[in-house]
Design a binder for these strands. Structure first.
Length: 654
RNA sequence: GCCCAUGUGGCGCAGAGGUAGCGCACCCCCUUGGUAAGGGGGAGGCCACGAGUUCGAAUCUCGUCAUGGGCACCA
């Protein structure tokens, strides 16, 4: 189709400008959402100017900006793939488009005409979208592009036109505070091919918010656990190691969290078991994981030497696999003897190392690793236990996240499409979870279809100081495993009944939680968690004897301390601050004389306080035993919560 | 796994078709210093790995591995 026919399609439509008056009435949040969506259009139009042959997929607003997915083709000169080096050019082009303050116009068009139009414009993805829309009439949005040598006579190029439900801002000038940031791949409708290029960026209502967001990005980069971890000597990565290597400092962190977990589970009436990592395939066939998740398991094929399988020697399948979760072998523990209703609720914890062969692209620092430990436990319950057990789990979750000053939200996920088992059983399980949540009184979200294949679940999302959400804790009901493992207990009347299993974790995986925590606190751990809690800094050699005595006293009191005696005092203080050690003890002639320490609470502008040594140790032990969160966080979460400044079109007009 | 990038001493970075440089850290010497870097000297890298092009490759090409930003995945 020629540009003339595009022109005739265009002129046949009634284009209406987006109402300025209506926009001015919107709440700041609604305005900002429109700015972001419109910025996606501005971005796309900028790409169209640079690569006229590009094909567009979709371009929505995101919580901080926008993206647009598009298809480039190395075979066409006018659709060459963009590289990261092109982002600057894109940004300038977007600014040029914004500076024109070109009106956004909307028109209604019959679906069949729209298909014709996008055929003429060579936009196959748009046609695909159109074909899925049922409405007979759809809307188009367009805005003009800055003039260039060759686009004035060709409406297909003079305008950027998009299939879009809207709504949009009145003109491109409102998208002035948008900035393209990243270039990445994306899949069209979840299919593997063809792969699209996603240009993503951020957009705000004004200069100040944009700059604050860019500052936030910088701060997140500085807090990245993959940078801080090695810097604080917590862990490191090596190409030959399939998972992070935990250094002594990192191991202390892990142990502290594990202790916290054990204290809570012991208090909650749990027992802890210790099972092997390797199991025969039959275990996973029984649990159902073999069918569903074999792809992600580390499997060892074939017959093992000197192996005496307990069953049929000739036929036994010797394929074994590293366990990717604790549940199946916990079922074996339950089955190891005949259980009575008097044993329930039975709460069984297991924190063994798990291995999952994650896709290479899924691996991410500590957040997704191929080997990790969960603060896992399984509950075996009679139906009447469900509500109270889930309620006490929700209480445990609350205690835990409070200890880290982490806000959280709850989400109930219900039956997915690939569910196992019977519908009636599912409904019963979901009703139990709902009841416990309703009794809690805390608001929660519902996420239909996102449950595990074996049961519905409550997921816990924490909100860190950078305003990001992470899934950590989980409470999952399971009616499938008891069925598959034929779990039974003898009820009061002597009849055999099937228990309900609950899978639960509070931290999720320790690896992931530590990653979140590092970024949440920016490496400034509360005293109870800090790998090194105190640095001892004798001013001169004359104090070395006293420093030794202080070190010994601290050690006897189980306080983790290091002696820093070499170099100038200033340099040592800087070093200790850089290592984010919470307490610095400066020891000079005065302190040695009076058996005191001058403690500098680090990371808080160098406040000093003189303690007797005994007082100081008592102070630290108090912080530790009560697990006090003695950290002042630099927060950025407000950036994502506060309503954007109100914006009328007049303010942004120029 | 997919798309696009990246890979230079422990860490952070420069450089570049003729066989490597800076800062921090490290080691030694001097300095014993009251709250965020005292001074001097030294050691350390076949520029991720493999192949190709070239008289010559760390630099160009291809492949592999790893990492990063996303996508897909996440029992």
């Amino acid at each position: 189709m020629t540009s003339t026919s595009i022109a005739s399609l265009f002129t046949a439509l009634s284009w209406q400008p987006v109402s300025k008056a209506e926009f001015a009435q919107l709440t700041p949040d609604e305005q900002l959402k429109r700015i972001r969506h419109s910025s996606a259009h501005v971005l796309a139009s900028a790409v169209q100017m640079i690569r006229p042959g590009v094909q567009f997929a979709t371009g929505p607003a995101t919580p901080t900006g926008f993206f647009y997915d598009m298809h480039f083709s190395a075979e066409h000169d006018d659709a060459q793939p963009l590289g990261e080096a092109d982002l600057a050019l894109l940004e300038n082009t977007m600014r040029a488009i914004a500076n024109r303050a070109a009106a956004f116009e909307v028109a209604q068009i019959e679906k069949s005409k729209a298909i014709e139009l996008f055929q003429a414009l060579n936009q196959p993805h748009k046609i695909e979208i159109l074909e899925r829309i049922e409405a007979p009439v759809i809307t188009l949005y367009r805005h003009t592009l800055p003039p260039s040598a060759d686009n004035q006579n060709d409406p297909g190029n003079r305008y950027f036109v998009d299939l879009c439900a809207g709504p949009h801002v009145p003109h491109t000038g409102l998208c002035k505070f948008a900035k393209p940031l990243t270039l990445s791949g994306a899949h069209w409708r979840g299919e593997e091919k063809p792969t699209l290029t996603r240009v993503a960026g951020t957009a705000w209502a004004n200069d100040k918010d944009l700059n604050q967001y860019l500052k936030f990005l910088e701060a997140s980069k500085n807090r990245d656990h993959r940078t801080l971890g090695p810097q604080l000597d917590l862990f490191s990565f090596h190409p030959w190691a399939m998972a992070p290597l935990w250094h002594p400092n990192g191991f202390i962190l892990r142990q502290q969290l594990a202790n916290f977990w054990r204290e809570m589970t012991e208090a909650g009436g749990y027992v802890e078991i210790f099972n092997p990592l390797l199991y025969r395939k039959a275990l996973y066939e029984t649990s159902g994981h073999w069918d569903h998740f074999r792809e992600n398991m580390f499997i060892f094929e074939g017959r093992q030497e000197n192996d005496h399988a307990g069953c049929d020697h000739e036929q036994a399948d010797q394929t074994i696999a590293l366990k990717p979760m604790n549940c199946p072998d916990t079922m074996l523990y339950f089955k190891s003897s005949l259980r009575s209703y008097r044993d329930l609720p039975m709460r069984v914890a297991e924190g063994q190392i798990l291995h999952r062969n994650e896709a290479s692209g899924a691996i991410h620092g500590l957040m997704r690793t191929r080997s990790f430990i969960q603060d896992d436990a399984h509950l075996f319950l009679a139906p009447e236990h469900v509500q109270s057990e889930v309620a006490s789990l929700l209480a445990m979750i609350d205690t835990t996240y409070r200890a880290f000053d982490l806000e959280y939200s709850l989400k109930l996920s219900t039956r997915p499409e690939n569910y196992m088992g019977e519908l009636a059983v599912w409904n019963q399980a979901e009703a139990g979870l709902k009841q416990a949540l309703d009794n809690l009184g805390k608001p929660y979200d519902l996420d239909p279809g996102e449950g595990a294949f074996y049961g519905p679940k409550i997921d816990v999302y924490v909100l860190d100081s950078l305003g990001r959400q992470w899934q950590c804790g989980t409470v999952q009901l399971d009616f499938q495993l008891p069925e598959r493992f034929e779990l039974k207990y003898a009820d009061a009347d002597g009849s055999l009944k099937q228990p309900i299993v609950v899978h639960r974790a509070v931290f999720g995986s320790f690896e992931r939680f530590i990653g979140i925590l590092i970024e949440h606190v920016g490496g400034l751990f509360p005293t109870w968690l800090a790998p090194v809690q105190a640095a001892v800094l004798p001013i001169g050699e004359a104090q070395s004897g006293y420093a030794q005595a202080v070190m010994k006293a601290l050690k006897d009191s189980k306080i983790r301390a290091v002696l820093m005696a070499d170099g100038t005092l200033n340099a040592r203080i800087r070093q200790a601050e850089t290592q984010k050690i919470p307490h610095l003890l400066v020891l000079g002639a005065r302190e040695a004389e009076q058996e005191t320490v001058t403690a500098r609470k680090s990371r808080q502008g160098g406040n000093q306080q003189v303690f007797t040594l005994a007082e100081f140790m008592e102070h630290i032990n108090e912080l530790v035993s009560r697990r006090v969160f003695d950290v002042t966080l630099e927060r950025f979460d407000d950036l994502f919560r506060k309503p954007a400044a109100h914006l009328s079109t007049e303010d942004a007009d120029y």
